[in-house]
Simulated assay, not measured.
Amino acid sequence: MADADARPARPSGVIAAKSKAATEAAAAADICSQLPADCLAMVLIFLSPHYDPHTFMAEVTTRLADVPVHGCTTAGELSPDGWDDNSVVALGFAADDFTVFAQPIFGLSGFRVDEGRRLGVQLKQELARHGARDDDGVFGLVLIDGMCQREEAIMSAIYASLDNIPLVGGSAGDGLRFERTWVFHDGKAHTDMAVLILIRTSLPFRLFKCDNFEPTSTKMVVTEADLEQRIVKQLNAEPAAEEYCRAVGIADSELDPFLFAAHPVLVRVGGSYFARSIQRVNPDGSLRFFCAIDEGMVLTAARSRNSVAAAREMLAEVRDDIGEVSIFIGFECILRRLDAEQHQFAREMSELYRDSRIVGFHTYGEQYGSMHFNQTLTGVAIGKRPGAQQ
């Protein structure tokens, strides 16, 4: 635990903090002791479901009374020390380098496309009032209730309203319970809610996306589905679980989260493939997905490639583009972690994240541009000001 007297007075860039304290009050005090006393534009909190979200947020906002606090619960944390569980991760954005505009989206179960577009327009107008052009160093973060099942409609509506502002984010998690997730806005925890945050910065930045799957020639067509619940009942006019097992070459007795993590299916959109991962098999043999599905949708069985090598390639590309990176703010599907644990390269991935300063959380789904998908690492890399020390 850091000494409160040692808190830096004038921050720069993004400051990362972590706590594994036993209680909400102790964790909040620990986190705040590691952040600057003032001059923060925003604090993002990624909170393990090990903690009560209401109690923690009340404790942290008491200590950060003048700072906007947003964030969400997680399925695991990307901490400054690598992959973690039962912890709190916080990111403090220095006011000297960032200007932040945030809008909540309440009532996702009744979300209307026109509402999402209106919110995006409002935030753009707020940017304009502060002298920012659309291309003037602005990017967006979106945090969404991971149980809302409305991410595709939300992202499509928001992205359309933001024109050329790049957008990235993640769906809140609940460990592996899949019961209830929470999104934080202005220091309070909400369900059935998302928050859109536009961030203007003078620092170099780049959005990134990384996965480790390639398409095969094996195809499956969704022939019966419950679209609202994201449940596929039939594939190729056969019971969904049976046909999925046949297509990927496994026994149906083996179906569990680890196997789904190792064998996602892909959907082709605009010439690119995106993962559509399965959350669980239902007692009737149907499959519940993390992402939207539709009857007639063609699913392609995937072939995996080396996850560590793919991540290293992505990191190198980002550094080649913007130079030295101070932090990678990451949103990573929990299924990527399960796959790494199952195939015994989790330690190597965690060490790569620690050494590269990838900080964020494990999600129930990732956002990038107008898209929502799974089994991917998305995020934004923040560069350093030339000559700055960190």
Rank of each mutant, 00 (worst) to 15 (best):
S286P: 01
A160V: 11
A237R: 09
Y244E: 07
S286T: 14
G140T: 08
F274P: 01
T23C: 09
D211H: 14
A172D: 05
I250Y: 06
F56G: 06
D66M: 10
F361I: 11
D339N: 15
D355C: 00
L196H: 07
I231A: 08
E366H: 10
F345Q: 11
R288W: 01
L44Y: 08
C32K: 09
V67H: 01
V232K: 08
D38L: 00
S109L: 05
M57T: 13
A316R: 12
E238Q: 15
S79P: 02
L47W: 06
Y244R: 08
I199C: 12
E254D: 13
Q122Y: 03
T216W: 09
L315C: 01
V113P: 00
R133L: 10
F98Q: 02
G187L: 09
F139V: 12
P36Q: 02
A157H: 11
S326R: 14
S356I: 01
V265A: 05
A37V: 15
I105C: 08
C210M: 15
G271V: 10
G146I: 09
P166K: 12
I158K: 00
T218L: 11
T181I: 04
Q149F: 13
S272L: 13
V60Y: 01
F205T: 04
L315I: 14
L64Y: 03
A309Q: 15
M147C: 14
G323E: 09
E77T: 05
F111L: 13
G107M: 00
F93Y: 15
I144Y: 02
N374V: 06
T62F: 12
S156M: 11
A29H: 02
I278P: 04
M349Y: 05
P283V: 11
P80K: 03
V308A: 10
L40H: 06
A21Q: 13
P215Q: 12
G140C: 12
L127S: 13
L352P: 08
R268L: 10
S33T: 01
E317C: 09
L203A: 07
D52Y: 02
L207A: 05
M1K: 14
Q103M: 13
V138N: 04
V232Q: 05
T363G: 03
K188H: 15
V380F: 06
E295H: 02
G249R: 06
R354Y: 04
S253P: 00
E115Y: 10
I197F: 03
L287M: 14
A381M: 04
S304C: 03
V265H: 04
S109D: 15
V232M: 10
P386F: 07
A172N: 08
V298A: 13
A316P: 00
R180M: 12
V14M: 06
R347W: 04
A75R: 03
G173V: 06
P239T: 02
D134Y: 13
F274L: 14
P53N: 02
S87A: 15
D339C: 04
M147N: 10
V14W: 05
F93Q: 09
A75P: 05
V308F: 10
F328H: 12
P53K: 07
I278C: 09
S19C: 12
